[in-house]
C-alpha cells in the first residue's frame, strides 16, 4: 500500500528535478548576453528622457544626510540622489539607478570616481551616447 505511493512520489520528485534542471540550463543560456536592461549615460539635461528607466550619472555630492544627497551633475545642475550612503563630499561619484523625476535618481549602485575625473569629456560622451551613436549603447 505504502510502497507504490512512495515510488510515485519519487517519480514526481525526479520530474521536478529534471524540470528545474532544464530551466536552469535555459536561464543560463539566455543569461550569456543580456542587453534588456541597459543603464543609459545621462547628465541632468538628458535625465528627463529616462524617467522610470535605469540610468548612470556622474555627480559631485554637496551634502548627504539621511540617505538623500544633494549633488551637482556634470553639466552643472542640481540633482537629488536617493539611497546613497555617506560618500566622500565633492568627489565625483557614479550612481547607477532608476531615474525618478527630472532631477532625482534612486541609486542602487555607486562608485567613487575620485577627484581627478574629467567631467567635461564624460559630459560630451553622454551627449554622443544619446545622440549620433545611440545604437552602440541603447
Amino acid at each position: 500500500m505504502l510502497q507504490p505511493l512512495l515510488r510515485k512520489q519519487k517519480v514526481e520528485f525526479f520530474k521536478l528535478y529534471i524540470y528545474s534542471f532544464t530551466w536552469l540550463i535555459f536561464s543560463f543560456l539566455f543569461q550569456a548576453m543580456d542587453t534588456s536592461n541597459p543603464a543609459a549615460f545621462v547628465n541632468a539635461q538628458l535625465l528627463p528622457n529616462f524617467i522610470g528607466k535605469k540610468v548612470r550619472a556622474v555627480v559631485q555630492v554637496n551634502q548627504c544626510d539621511g540617505g538623500v544627497a544633494i549633488a551637482k551633475s556634470i553639466d552643472d545642475h542640481q540633482l537629488t540622489i536617493k539611497g546613497l550612503p555617506q560618500v566622500p563630499l565633492m568627489n565625483y561619484v557614479e550612481v547607477i539607478g532608476i531615474a525618478e523625476s527630472n532631477n532625482s535618481i534612486d541609486a542602487e549602485i555607486w562608485t567613487d570616481f575620485g577627484n581627478t575625473f574629467d567631467a567635461n569629456s564624460y559630459n560630451q560622451l553622454c551627449q554622443l551616447a544619446n545622440g549620433e551613436f545611440k545604437s552602440l549603447f541603447l
Binding site: E94, F113, S121, L125, L128, L136
Partner: peptide, 13 residues
C-alpha cells in the same frame, strides 16, 4: 583611473 571608462567608450565610437 575612472577616466578610462569614458576613454573606452569614446574609443568604441
Amino acid at each position: 583611473d575612472f577616466n578610462e571608462i569614458a576613454s573606452h567608450f569614446i574609443d568604441c565610437i
